[in-house]
């Protein structure tokens, strides 16, 4: 039986007349990576702050491995590692000193503290710069220490709030690799982002949040399947493209368009059946030569657009 590592039920948070989080509910099972996906202002960060116990919800409950955050905050917090959106470290301390400090706040000391600091510095690849002041690090390096500070006490649940915002591609990749290693190692992860590709890469399950509510939830492929229950494919042909289009469109349940920027490319969509590509190829037989075919998956971006009517980066 799967154990819930993190459960949120009926979370509500208001700021004056603004309802930032509106009855939000989701749960993350042990060892799972759950992505909270939404545009800026959708309530992701407010949700995260309630999950880690920084913000007290107006109503609703957060439980971490069964410990209710409101009733037993110290027990619940001990199990959670928090990586805030902005770098939240002391620039006047070295990387190692920052990690030692946050480790101590979680009760680590002595040999165990030294060992854990060394380990997380290895995880984020900063062991060789650990004794330099944080203020001398690049933005990407600071972000990596930011993650390490959330890991130093070996949390059972790691909560990352948009950890790659404003990071160069190289550092971003390093951060994602670190998270992937943690997930592979069995750490439960709650990951928020408005970058679809990150969520697809890291998360087992995704909740799409809009205006403080989860409007869709599931595995990435399940969510994408809601947009297109059949399938999509690109077919590049050599010959009479118009005739090829007409031949494919004649198939029942199949729609076809010609790509604007690539006139020899047919975009084929079907709404029923797992794979209609063999039917398409048969219809093209004798009409046009098929140069290349490729299955096309809808993106989470499209799912989000479909569900909310707005782009994720709005």
């Amino acid at each position: 039986m799967l154990t819930a590592a993190l459960e949120c039920e009926g979370l509500v948070k208001r700021y004056g007349s603004l309802l930032a989080v509106d009855g939000l509910k989701f749960s993350v099972t042990e060892g799972e990576a759950y992505g909270l996906l939404g545009p800026n202002g959708s309530g992701k960060s407010t949700t995260i702050e309630m999950v880690v116990g920084v913000l007290i919800p107006d109503s609703g409950t957060v439980r971490v491995h069964g410990h209710e955050m409101a009733r037993h905050p110290l027990r619940a917090k001990r199990l959670v590692g928090y990586v805030p959106q902005e770098v939240a470290l002391y620039p006047d301390l070295t990387g190692r000193e920052n990690l030692r400090y946050f480790g101590r706040l979680f009760g680590l000391r002595g040999q165990r503290l030294r060992r854990r600091v060394a380990e997380v510095l290895d995880v984020v690849g900063l062991a060789d710069r650990a004794d330099e002041r944080l203020g001398t690090y690049s933005g990407g390096m600071q972000r990596r220490v930011n993650i390490a500070a959330g890991l130093v006490h070996e949390p059972k649940v790691l909560v990352l709030d948009e950890p790659t915002v404003g990071v160069d591609p190289q550092s971003r990749n390093a951060i994602l690799e670190s998270v992937e290693r943690l997930v592979a190692g069995g750490t439960t992860v709650l990951y928020t982002s408005h970058y679809m590709e990150e969520v697809e890469r890291v998360c087992d399950r995704v909740g799409i949040i809009d205006r403080g509510r989860i409007i869709a939830e599931g595995r990435p492929e399940e969510l994408m399947a809601t947009l297109s229950p059949g399938g999509r494919a690109e077919v590049e042909v050599d010959g009479d493209v118009q005739a090829a289009g007409v031949a494919v469109a004649a198939l029942p349940g199949v729609a076809v368009t010609v790509a604007d920027h690539r006139p020899r490319l047919l975009l084929v969509t079907w709404t029923e059946g797992a794979d209609r590509l063999p039917d398409v190829l048969q219809a093209l037989n004798g009409v046009a030569a098929v140069v290349r075919t490729a299955a096309v998956r809808p993106s989470l971006e499209e799912v989000f657009l479909h569900l909310t009517g707005t782009s994720l980066r709005d």
Binding site: E49, V52, G53, V54, P73, L74, R75, K77, R78, V80, Y82, P84, E86, V87, A88, L89, Y90, P91, F102, L105, F106, G107, A149
Partner: peptide, 14 residues
């Protein structure tokens, strides 16, 4: 401003 207060509050610290 630094955000370290929120991070500290996320630790098991009253």
């Amino acid at each position: 401003r630094l955000g370290t207060l929120a991070r500290t509050r996320a630790a098991p610290v009253a």
